[in-house]
Computed example of a mutant assay.
Amino acid sequence: MATDRPGASDSGPTPPEGACRAHQIAGELRSRIDRGEYRLGQLLPTQRELGADFGVSSDTVQRAMRELQTEGWIESRQGSGSRVIRVRRIHTPKASAGQPVPIGLGPLISEAFEAEEVSLDAYCLTIDSLTDHVGVQADRVARGEVSPRSISLRLLLPSTEPKPAFPVAAGDPEGTRPYESWARDGGVPHGATA
């Protein structure tokens, strides 16, 4: 039944323009989380930064953030910002025009920790990024968001002989700093154990 009221239709009132834009922004933020631009446990940009990024008012950004919070994607705390607390399960990406689609390490590890039996096999020059991602998952386990029955991690690090290939820093033309740090820690950086 049609009405004569402005903004009304057979399916109910038309949402205000700001609400539609907020829903679009929430969708874009979900996509960015899915693509790994905002990782699990990471703070989102401030509302001011998001407003500038999308060219909208802070009220519109707040509506988008409330939508994401209601859906359980983020948690927001006054004065602390908004943190990603959920990522969608990833699926095999579809390449367009034969181009490979990059997948970040975060979504892969996040998905692995949703299983009952977590098993990770990793080959790394260093364990820095792996340590960060597994730490985020340990926080999820501590909060009760995921509860794997067992976790198994096999890590294959390169031998100290011959020297592994490290990129050379501009300020270190002979490239000795990465080797010194790596060798000092027995080939396992940041106090990890082999």
Rank of each mutant, 00 (worst) to 15 (best):
R88D: 01
P16L: 12
G18F: 12
D132E: 14
V136L: 08
L130C: 08
G79V: 05
P13Y: 08
R63I: 00
L43H: 04
E28A: 14
Q137C: 04
S147Y: 01
V56M: 02
A97L: 13
A112G: 01
S57Q: 14
G144A: 08
Q62E: 15
E114Q: 13
G55F: 09
E116Q: 14
T131V: 09
L105P: 00
I109N: 05
V136M: 07
R143K: 12
P107A: 02
A19L: 10
L40M: 06
T70M: 03
V141Y: 05
S11A: 13
R32F: 10
A26M: 03
C124W: 01
I109R: 07
Y123Q: 09
A97S: 13
I127D: 13
S147I: 00
L105N: 00
V136Y: 07
A52F: 11
V141L: 09
F113A: 07
G36K: 04
E67F: 09
S58Y: 13
R77K: 14
Q78C: 00
R143P: 03
I90H: 00
R86I: 08
P93I: 03
Q99M: 08
G41N: 12
R140D: 01
D34Y: 09
L43S: 06
E111K: 14
D121H: 08
L44V: 11
T60E: 15
L50W: 11
R48G: 02
E111Y: 10
T126C: 10
S57T: 15
G135E: 06
R89W: 05
T92V: 00
L43N: 03
I85A: 10
I103Q: 06
A19Q: 10
Q137P: 00
S31Y: 11
P100T: 03
L125F: 04
D34P: 02
S76T: 11
G51M: 08
S96V: 12
E111A: 15
M65Y: 02
V87M: 15
R66V: 07
V118A: 04
V87N: 06
S96T: 09
S58E: 11
P45N: 03
A19H: 09
C124R: 00
T46D: 13
R63L: 05
Q47P: 05
A142I: 12
C20D: 12
G36S: 06
R86D: 09
